[in-house]
Computed example of a mutant assay.
Amino acid sequence: MRVILADDHTLVRKGLIALLDDTDIQVVGDAEDGREVLEKAAQLEPDVVVMDISMPSLNGLEATRQLKKSLPKTKVLILTMHSNEEYVYETLRAGASGYLIKRSAPRELIAAIKAAHRGEYFLSPSISATVIQKYLQQAAGDSEPAPPGFTALTPREREVIQLIAEGLSNPQIADQLCVSLKTVKTHRSNLMEKLDLHNTAEITRYAIHTGLISVD
């Protein structure tokens, strides 16, 4: 089984590599941000990608969404400190096969990777089983829609809000996303209206609060 590990903390990546070294799981690559994950996955075509949500340049949620479009057979396991139910729903919708909290025991990570490889879903035991039930109800249209917020943003708006919070200017964002400056301004205006945000400082606070970026 071939795996790529993605986390913006070098010590975390090295620790995970050491943990998996004594198993039948082969770590074929590692990455420190979402865009590097996509590049390495395209080159190496791993069986499973294990990644955090809070990563620079492109967060794990959007990286998952893009990865599943380009490599639908590759499984994605989210390994993060965030236990927010909204993130669980969104990563499942994006195509992830599992969601594990970083404080989980090492054996749970190994079990989660193997479960994902088998085509099964795996949730951290600390996340209530009702999360899956609620997600399935939402997918079937049996529950009320989620309130406006992060889920109201388009994938591109989520990329833009992260890059704004990371300090990039509109021209820099346009260059990184390969879109026009006008398009960036439109996305910026739309996301601010949806989230009722009024300036860059509020956008940054929102991104930190929701875990799109980390402050460490």
Rank of each mutant, 00 (worst) to 15 (best):
V37Q: 02
L67K: 05
T64M: 06
E62D: 08
E86L: 14
D47T: 11
T80K: 05
Q43V: 05
V48N: 07
T74W: 02
F122T: 00
S54C: 08
K75L: 07
L44C: 08
E45T: 12
S70G: 10
E45P: 00
E39T: 14
Y89P: 01
L38C: 04
I78G: 10
V48T: 11
A63P: 01
K68G: 00
P46C: 09
A96S: 08
T64C: 03
S57G: 00
A42V: 01
A115I: 07
A111G: 05
P125N: 02
M51C: 12
T74P: 03
P106H: 10
Q43M: 12
K102C: 09
A105L: 15
L92Q: 05
S57H: 14
A41L: 03
R93Y: 11
L79D: 06
R103E: 15
T74Y: 09
I53W: 04
N59R: 03
L67I: 00
K114S: 10
L71R: 05
A115R: 13
E39I: 13
T64F: 03
H117G: 08
G119Q: 05
S124T: 06
K68C: 01
K68Y: 03
I78F: 07
E108A: 11
M81W: 12
L109T: 10
P56M: 06
H117Q: 14
V88F: 13
S54G: 11
E120I: 11
Q66G: 02
A111K: 14
A105V: 12
K75N: 13
E45V: 14
N59E: 11
Y99N: 00
A41Y: 01
G119D: 02
D47N: 12
K114T: 08
L71Q: 09
E39R: 15
P46T: 05
M51A: 06
L77V: 03
I110Q: 10
Y121S: 00
R65K: 12
M55I: 08
E45G: 01
L38G: 02
A115P: 09
I113M: 01
S70F: 01
P106C: 07
H117W: 13
P46M: 02
S70H: 12
N59Q: 11
A105N: 15
K68R: 14
A94P: 10
Y99K: 06
A41F: 09
D52S: 03
R103M: 15
T91N: 09
E85W: 12
E62R: 07
I110A: 05
E39Y: 13
G60R: 02
R103N: 15
A105G: 03
K68A: 01
R107K: 15
L79E: 02
I101N: 00
E85S: 13
S57Q: 14
F122I: 10
V49C: 00
N84V: 12
L109I: 06
R65S: 10
L71C: 00
E120S: 01
